[in-house]
């Protein structure tokens, strides 16, 4: 991480807990880059997270108020804090399993209320911390520690889910699209209402090694190859699209 961002890191913290090749470290830096570009006051920022690898992005690293909560419940805790003190800029950073599986009900209700919460869902499409079990976001056919013959079920499209539930800003980017992602994070920091960014973040340890993407760079290359914009997607055949992940701002 660049030295300029060190002031946003809690003093004394030297390393991150993430595996080599994990995308969460990149995301951790990109969020701070957006905060830095906007000169946000960290003393007025509250970062709420659930349980899982992504929940460790803000806690303990970010030098603002951090609330590391229960598995799935980050949005409920955040709702209480934001409602009681609307002056707080409340950002929820957590994983796909946390926000959309065990916390799925809170996600759709928080979106419905359109409370001013800035939600960043780090989606690695798997339960990383617990050993690589299938998630509600794992693509069909993917091998995980609980689907050794491939996931038989289709995944959630989190952006469509949250949009349908009433969110007023919805976007999807990958950590391989840092410029666009920082722009999106800045946008949600400045706007009011329930904002949701799904960030695709590779997990070489649990996802890659079971799915013939053995090396971290394989996963990065895979994401670069598969992520397309909506415009790019328009010209593609169904066959071409099957593999692609559409990124961009879906509701802004």
């Amino acid at each position: 991480m660049v030295r300029a961002l060190e002031k946003y890191i809690r003093p004394g913290i030297k390393t991150t807990p993430f595996c080599p090749g994990c995308g969460h470290g990149i995301l951790m830096g990109l969020i701070l880059r957006a905060i830095d570009e906007l000169q946000m006051d960290m003393k007025k920022m509250l970062f709420v997270s659930g349980i899982g690898c992504a929940a460790w992005i803000p806690s303990p690293h970010y030098n603002g108020d951090t609330l590391h909560t229960l598995h799935g419940r980050a949005l409920a805790f955040a709702t209480g804090a934001k409602l009681f003190n609307p002056e707080l800029c409340v950002m929820v950073i957590s994983g796909d399993g946390d926000l959309s599986s065990i916390g799925g009900n809170h996600l759709i209700h928080a979106a419905r209320r359109n409370l001013d919460l800035k939600v960043i869902c780090a989606n690695n499409m798997i339960y990383g911390m617990t050993g690589g079990q299938v998630a509600s976001t794992t693509p069909k056919g993917t091998k995980t520690s609980t689907t050794d013959e491939g996931n038989p079920y289709p995944p959630f499209d989190l952006c469509r889910l949250v949009k349908a539930a009433g969110a007023t800003y919805v976007a999807r980017y990958s950590v391989t699209q840092p410029v666009a992602l920082v722009r999106a994070i800045k946008r949600i920091l400045l706007r009011e209402g329930f904002s949701f960014i799904e960030v695709l973040s590779p997990c070489p340890t649990q996802y890659g090694r079971r799915n013939r993407l053995d090396r971290p760079e394989d996963l990065i290359r895979d994401l670069i190859r598969r992520c397309v914009t909506e415009e790019e997607a328009e010209g593609m055949t169904d066959e071409e699209l099957a593999e692609k992940i559409i990124t961009g701002e879906f509701l802004a």
Partner: peptide, 14 residues
């Protein structure tokens, strides 16, 4: 679940 979690969040907000 959400109710008690919101209560705890609000308590930390003062």
């Amino acid at each position: 679940i959400a109710s008690i979690c919101a209560v705890i969040g609000a308590s930390w907000a003062g």
